[in-house]
Computed example of a mutant assay.
Amino acid sequence: MRTRHLLILCCVFLLSIGSRNGLIAQNAPRVSPDNDATSARKVAASTANDAASNASQSDPRIGPGDLLELKVFGAPELGGTLRVSGAGEITVPLIGAEKVAGLSPEQAQKNLEQRLVSGGFLRDPHVNILVKEFATQGISVLGEVARPGIYPLLGSPRLFDALSAAGGATNRAGKMIYISRREDPSAGSAILLSQDPRQSLAQNVFLQPGDTVMVSRAGIVYVSGDVRTPGGYVMNNDENLTVLQAIALAQGLNPTASTKNVRIIRRKEGKLQEIPVELKQIMTAKAPDISLENEDVLFVPNSASKSAARRSLESVVQVATGLAIYRR
């Protein structure tokens, strides 16, 4: 009798454990290969959409007055060359007016495809939009160029294309060029042009409609007085011009030049300062060479006339800057 009771208790205990495990199994979420595949497709689609969204934000935007070439695969009668109206719309056969201003070409293509499907005109349309001319998003070229202005460059313009359209750089142009984006000016870039042709080709970057190209102005040093070729000499952005280098650019001193009373005339806070230069000591390496700054005037007097040393600072500056020929 006691043995029978023990057997019954054991059976009840085992049945309770089995039923509890069964309930847990029923409540647990079921994972099937189909669910895994569906989840993977959703993640891939989400990633693709994010990538397309990020890419479209950096694409050029269509604006009023732009000239578009529309093509619909399998239905050439729906395509053609269209000009965006002042309201930012184009008129497409069967669809009618469609607003495209502010959109990238890819976004406008998708909108037209959806309109063709929703209207029951085509089942699986493929639309292509090419911007043939940006009327409102030309490239602005400013600074030290021959003809500053806005240039509607077609295709995929590069930096040198914009500089060429503006007539090239002036004699006062520096080596630094700044490029800013219309939509995000803080995301601009600075390019230091190299004299190496191979590096210059690598610096010929692509531009986008609406970009602004600013060519910097190089510093200049004036050499005046009894030198062979007085004039203004350009200081490139990566150069530090000294007194001896400036005299060398001016092709040296005349035989009648005096190494005494040589001076640098520098403008500081609206006032002219006179800095004496011991040229003879510098030329014999008994004194350090002096670095020049932008807009400095290096004046070398004539030994035959002491009156040159007594000239006023203002007259020296006027003569130096008035007769200067910018040289490199």
Results as ranks from 00 to 15, higher is better:
G225A: 12
A218P: 09
A190W: 00
M214C: 00
L163P: 02
V227K: 09
R228M: 13
G167E: 02
I177L: 13
T229Y: 13
S194F: 02
V205G: 02
S164K: 01
A169P: 04
N237A: 09
A202D: 08
N237F: 07
Q251N: 13
I179G: 06
M176F: 12
R217V: 03
D184T: 14
G231K: 08
A165K: 02
M235V: 11
S216T: 13
A169K: 05
P185G: 04
S189W: 00
D238Q: 11
N254W: 08
F160E: 01
M176D: 14
V215P: 02
A202E: 09
M214T: 06
P230M: 14
L193H: 02
V221E: 07
Y233I: 07
F206K: 06
L163M: 02
L163V: 00
S216N: 08
N240M: 11
Y222F: 15
Y178E: 10
D161G: 03
G210W: 04
N254Q: 15
Y233P: 04
I247C: 08
L201D: 14
N204C: 07
V213M: 06
Y222C: 11
Q208Y: 10
D226V: 12
M176L: 15
V243L: 15
L241V: 15
D238G: 09
Q203M: 11
G210Y: 04
V223F: 11
A218N: 05
V213I: 15
F206Q: 07
A169Q: 06
S164I: 01
G225W: 14
D238H: 08
V243C: 14
I177R: 07
N171W: 08
Y178I: 05
V227G: 12
L163C: 01
S216A: 12
A173H: 04
F160H: 02
F206C: 00
I179F: 10
L192D: 05
V243F: 15
E239K: 12
G219T: 08
Q208G: 05
S200Q: 13
D196F: 05
I191K: 02
